[in-house]
Design a protein around this nucleic acid. Structure first.
Lengths: 357, 357
DNA sequence: TTGTAGGCGTTATCAT
DNA sequence: ATGATAACGCCTACAA
């Protein structure tokens, strides 16, 4: 009798018993009394195979738990149906939302996604690129990262097409999906101006990052349009995270006279800003109005709920994926897709309090 | 003259010119005047090759931009150096932190990670499992998902070893990493009791989820130890997200007399709870004390900052990865690793206000 | 409609 | 120390 592991019980604990290779196309061929090419065809729903044999083959394949080896297929076809996604860190809520959108779209199209974090560490970035190259990914998506700056050229030439999403340093010729930063910031700042504020601070990200530069430009444009003076002392920079928002805001609180409104580069910074203001014994929006950017879920649950600029994060991931699909199939796409944003007014902004002279 | 953008810069747009195969081991062999086996050995730093030729080969390989094909290697070795990570959604901050830890550890060990979301959708779960099977991943990590419930048996037998992280429905025989839920909750609840509270509500997750069950058990144990009566009307269930926290808390606010403290299943729920309390015109901790669970970054930045139970999320990812590595190499590991948690006392909890009779 | 015969880029086992 | 040669699992002409 057969003494091989457990007959039909199959479920005997044992983690993936190593040494037991999964059935191959040839095994199925043997069972079905056909050649492995026929099996291959049947499994691909080719019309070049008798419908009945095809059904029989698929039947057998299912019963024996057959699964194509994506890697063997990849070797043969030179396409892995795999994309690489590189992010600075997935622990950033903005990034996570975008990646979620990507994953969704990729899954729909039958693509598997490799996730890699660069941690803004050059060495790691190198590893990531190398790794994606070795895995022979069909395409690469980069979100909120600096990778582009250093490796994009080699990436897109030697490895696979690349699409950037809100990247820090976009490179020439790179395909990308970006939010309408300038316009969105202009609108956000104008909102504050419309409420009577004239001493409006800008709390940005690190110097040189594109989103920061663009949002700052929108801020200035709004001031200009309103004929308001630009006050350099009201511009500070955080790090895109709550911590940075705290320290940047503290610097702002030392300026006299104090700003009556702050436009934050992003919601994470705004979160820190909120804390700093509270710790200083002031209130939002009574003493200081606050506007964020991103519309992360936290914006709805902070106290007060944050007026902010909504980025359609998931959809941006989707758009990037679609753009990448086109590139991967050799089509041309718009070099950079600009996505409109929307100002969401909540309770962190209020009319300037009248100050009696 | 050349009118295309930038001449020899090589950066001539053109995404990954399809049709141009990257150099193979044979190409290198030709250039180095050796057999491809020698190249293979040289590239693996085998001692079975003349140091000088090895250096020369590596030199040539580097110059020609050679990159091993992980998929060809996988075919040959039957190991892909790849793991699959399945999550419900990466947009959940807890999940994102864990995955970040996993990615870090995996990268250190030379593993690439496939990320897949199940969205708690059975069909998607099927896809994920199928996809990982086809990609021939060497191991699987499942975090905060229900996947285990349905597919774990087939997963760990037919595909690869599996390790669960804070999974909803752990299955027998499954390896897993879990937080010390019962003890942590007991401590958290005792903290409230120590502040004089006796009407302490429990705001949980969906019925049947293991973390919920365990945390609830810890809550009850604390009451018991203090000789406090268990009040069923003070137990409500959300959905693990802020929205669910809001509605669950509203239900709680209708109970008379009102609870004076609430222990929330997780921080996301607590965020919603905070909002609901505020909207009811009450204050935390003056009117109601609040304890969360997880210690997400939001816990530090809410108003008031949340007293909560810290889970070492990144480290849990790391532990899971290490456990998986052992399983993949055929070693045995503890079936379930219990990670201790830590109560972080901030400002959302305060002594029960004396109520004059 | 089906089978035969490479070939994809590696690793691995032999000889030499 | 090196080179043939054969897998690995699949796809795809080409032949039948």
């Amino acid at each position: 009798m057969n003494q091989s592991p457990a007959p039909d019980i199959a479920h005997v604990c044992s983690a993936a018993t190593p040494g037991v290779r999964s059935p191959s196309i040839k095994d199925i061929a043997r069972l079905a009394n056909v050649s492995h090419s026929t099996v291959s065809r049947a499994l691909q729903n080719s019309t070049l195979v008798n419908p009945e044999t095809a059904t029989r083959i698929r039947q057998i394949a299912r019963q024996s738990g057959y699964r194509v080896s994506a890697i063997a297929r990849g070797l043969a076809t030179n396409k892995t149906h795999t994309i690489g996604v590189v992010v600075t860190t997935i622990a950033d809520p903005f990034v996570a939302e975008v990646v979620s959108g990507i994953e969704d779209a990729a899954n729909d199209r039958g693509y598997s996604v490799f996730l890699a974090e660069s941690n803004a560490d050059p060495q790691r970035e190198k590893n990531v690129v190398q790794s994606f190259a070795e895995q022979r990914v069909d395409g690469i998506l980069v979100t909120s990262s600096r990778v582009g700056a250093l490796y994009l050229p080699s990436l897109s030439e030697l490895i696979a097409p690349v699409v950037l999403i809100n990247n820090h340093h976009p490179t020439a010729f790179a395909h990308s999906v970006m939010i309408e930063n300038v316009e969105a910031s202009r609108v956000a700042t104008s909102h504050l101006i419309g409420l009577g504020h004239t001493r409006i601070a800008y709390l940005g990200d690190q110097f040189g990052y594109q989103s920061d530069t663009e949002r700052f430009a929108g801020y200035r444009r709004a001031l200009e349009q309103a004929g308001l003076p630009f006050l350099p002392e009201l511009v500070v920079h955080g790090d895109g995270k709550p911590e940075g928002g705290v320290s940047a805001m503290r610097r702002l609180l030392d300026v006299v006279p104090r700003p009556t409104a702050v436009f934050c580069y992003n919601d994470m910074s705004a979160l820190g800003t909120l804390l700093a203001i509270r710790q200083a014994g002031l209130r939002v929006p009574t003493d200081i109005s606050l506007v964020g950017f991103d519309d992360l879920f936290v914006a709805s649950y902070s106290d007060p709920p944050l007026t902010t600029v909504r980025q359609p994060m998931r959809q941006m991931g989707l758009l990037a994926m679609e753009s990448l699909l086109k590139l991967m199939s050799g089509q041309k796409t718009a070099d950079t897709i600009r996505v409109p944003a929307e100002l969401i007014v909540r309770q962190s902004t209020a009319p300037l309090r009248e100050i009696l002279p």
